[in-house]
Amino acid sequence: MISFFRKIRQKLLQEGLPAGQAGKVINYLKYATGEIFLVVVGILIALSINNWNETRKDQIAEGEFLEGIKNDLTEDRIYIEYILNRIEPKIEAYNQLNKDLPLDYIIDKIEIDSLLGVYIFVGQRTFYPISGSFQSAVAGNEINTYKNKELIRSIIKFYNSTYSRLIENGQILDERWDRLSQIYSHQRRLGHFDQLNDTKFSLILDDIHFHFVQLQGYQTSLISSIEEIDRIINNIEY
């Protein structure tokens, strides 16, 4: 642009314009060049401000997303702890029924009935996560614009992998619990077992074992999920 005006100036001088007129043209060209320079600088400043505003908006959006994830995971952690507290008595009851006590229902009827009640009469809870913040960011494709790539990858992996497996394991556990509840619906309705002999007691343990194996694995998955939740929350706070 500057070289263009320089050529015009040189051409005007070569055409032999009067000194006064040539001076006016030169002054005009200087003025025009200055105006163009100011316009260009103004545009660059405007673009810089716009980019700064967009970056700031992205940072705010990312901060709100991470805060939402933190709140959701905190609530999830509380509920997982609640479920674990309900699982633990069942685990202990089965272990006592299967290992610690002699398989003699007649001798240990009161204690065995109590432990069977803990396992079969007490309801079951499984976990489903709060995923509003995550799903919203994924649906709007905003999650791909966030800058903290390592943290975002860990969050995506957690929801898409860890939580997905946990939900699937919970569904299997629910199916086995439904089966167990149906088998012993009469006892659950009455709130106690009829007189059992050792053979029937052993069959009950077999039915419980099918559920217990899945319950034990589910417990392990819940504990692992809490550990991952703690790591993600710590990284967000950091």
Rank of each mutant, 00 (worst) to 15 (best):
E75P: 00
I208K: 01
T55E: 10
N148S: 11
Q216H: 10
D100N: 12
Y184W: 05
N51D: 11
I229E: 00
T74R: 11
D230H: 04
D174K: 13
G16W: 15
S133G: 08
I223N: 15
I143A: 01
G117N: 01
I232L: 04
K7P: 00
A93Y: 01
Q216E: 15
E168Y: 06
E142T: 03
S221T: 04
F37H: 08
L203I: 05
G63C: 04
N27Q: 05
E54M: 02
Y163P: 00
D206F: 09
G63F: 02
N141D: 10
D174T: 10
S221G: 10
I236F: 06
K200E: 09
Q96R: 11
K99N: 15
N27W: 01
E64N: 12
A137G: 07
T33I: 10
N234R: 12
R188H: 02
S164Q: 07
R77G: 12
I112S: 07
F201N: 07
W177C: 06
K149G: 03
L103S: 11
N98R: 15
Y238G: 10
Y94W: 14
Y82E: 15
P89E: 11
S136D: 14
L173G: 06
D104Q: 10
Q216K: 13
I80D: 12
F201S: 08
G34T: 01
Y159W: 08
S136Q: 13
L97Q: 07
T126G: 09
E67A: 07
D206N: 11
P89H: 08
K11G: 12
L13C: 03
I80M: 14
R176Q: 09
N27A: 02
S48V: 08
D178M: 11
S185Q: 14
K90N: 02
I208W: 03
L17F: 14
L196C: 12
L205D: 04
S225C: 15
Y94E: 06
S3Q: 13
G23V: 00
L196V: 09
Y31T: 00
Q171P: 00
F158M: 01
E92F: 00
I87N: 07
D104A: 10
S224G: 12
Y128C: 06
S185T: 11
R125V: 10
D178N: 15
G123Q: 08
N71C: 09
E227G: 13
T199L: 04
F210A: 07
F4H: 11
H209C: 06
F134A: 09
Q171K: 13
T162K: 03
H211G: 02
E67F: 10
L205I: 07
D58H: 07
L103Y: 04
I233A: 00
I204G: 00
S185E: 13
